[in-house]
Simulated assay, not measured.
Amino acid sequence: MNHLPTFGLQYMLDENIPWEQVEPGVKRKVLSFDERIMMVKVAFDAGGVGALHHHHHTQISYVAEGVFEISIGAEKKILRQGDGYYIPPNEIHGALCLEAGILVDVFSPIREDFIQDK
């Protein structure tokens, strides 16, 4: 794992980390990670969708910019810049971007699927 560019990166300079297109209207940057924790920046165009899904990771996210409709389980809430949310392991969740924005996601353990084949 140590060969990956952001493994253990202590200072995350945005301009030095490339974007990865995830879905139409959604791109991400893996900012830094180690064996236990990972931080990811996700940019959404208005109308961009983080489809409903689940994973065994604990996730905490911060709305850095924009407006999002966040679904966790059966509940939906509109969140804006400065808001955040917590997703326990295996909970179905997703996001709809209402106004272009950025989420900062933290995962534990790391999302190995985000760094495979890099």
Score class of each variant (00 low, 15 high):
residue 88 P to W: 05
residue 101 G to H: 04
residue 74 A to P: 14
residue 54 H to F: 11
residue 57 H to G: 01
residue 102 I to G: 09
residue 91 E to M: 13
residue 27 K to P: 03
residue 52 L to W: 04
residue 59 Q to G: 05
residue 54 H to Y: 09
residue 86 Y to P: 04
residue 111 R to E: 12
residue 53 H to A: 03
residue 75 E to V: 12
residue 32 S to C: 14
residue 35 E to P: 02
residue 68 F to M: 14
residue 82 G to I: 08
residue 88 P to V: 08
residue 76 K to N: 12
residue 66 G to Y: 01
residue 100 A to P: 02
residue 47 G to D: 10
residue 88 P to I: 07
residue 64 A to H: 13
residue 73 G to V: 05
residue 103 L to N: 12
residue 108 S to N: 09
residue 99 E to G: 00
residue 38 M to Y: 12
residue 28 R to C: 07
residue 92 I to M: 05
residue 96 L to G: 01
residue 35 E to S: 14
residue 60 I to C: 14
residue 27 K to T: 00
residue 61 S to Y: 05
residue 83 D to M: 14
residue 101 G to C: 05
residue 100 A to M: 03
residue 51 A to R: 10
residue 24 P to W: 08
residue 86 Y to K: 01
residue 85 Y to K: 02
residue 71 S to F: 02
residue 74 A to F: 13
residue 46 A to N: 00
residue 111 R to D: 12
residue 54 H to N: 13
residue 90 N to L: 08
residue 65 E to H: 01
residue 47 G to Y: 03
residue 28 R to P: 07
residue 26 V to E: 04
residue 71 S to I: 10
residue 40 V to H: 02
residue 83 D to E: 12
residue 104 V to E: 05
residue 41 K to H: 14
residue 82 G to W: 08
residue 111 R to Q: 12
residue 108 S to T: 15
residue 58 T to D: 13
residue 68 F to H: 07
residue 26 V to P: 04
residue 46 A to W: 00
residue 92 I to F: 04
residue 77 K to F: 04
residue 110 I to R: 03
residue 108 S to P: 07
residue 44 F to S: 07
residue 102 I to D: 12
residue 38 M to R: 06
residue 101 G to F: 00
residue 56 H to S: 09
residue 97 C to I: 10
residue 95 A to L: 09
residue 55 H to V: 03
residue 98 L to W: 00
residue 108 S to I: 05
residue 36 R to I: 13
residue 45 D to A: 15
residue 36 R to P: 11
residue 25 G to Y: 06
residue 106 V to C: 15
residue 35 E to H: 14
residue 82 G to T: 06
residue 65 E to F: 02
residue 103 L to V: 11
residue 44 F to T: 06
residue 58 T to C: 02
residue 110 I to H: 04
residue 91 E to L: 13
residue 91 E to I: 13
residue 53 H to G: 01
residue 102 I to A: 05
residue 42 V to K: 00
residue 28 R to V: 09
residue 55 H to Q: 04
residue 75 E to R: 04
residue 31 L to Y: 03
residue 111 R to K: 11
residue 57 H to T: 03
residue 79 L to V: 15
residue 30 V to K: 07
residue 88 P to K: 09
residue 92 I to V: 09
residue 105 D to E: 11
residue 95 A to G: 13
residue 22 V to L: 14
residue 70 I to P: 05
residue 77 K to G: 06
residue 43 A to M: 07
residue 104 V to F: 04
residue 102 I to P: 01
residue 45 D to C: 05
residue 55 H to S: 01
residue 70 I to M: 14
residue 73 G to R: 03
residue 61 S to D: 10
residue 57 H to V: 00
residue 103 L to Y: 06
residue 61 S to V: 07
residue 38 M to L: 13
residue 65 E to W: 00
residue 37 I to A: 14
residue 105 D to T: 03
residue 34 D to L: 08
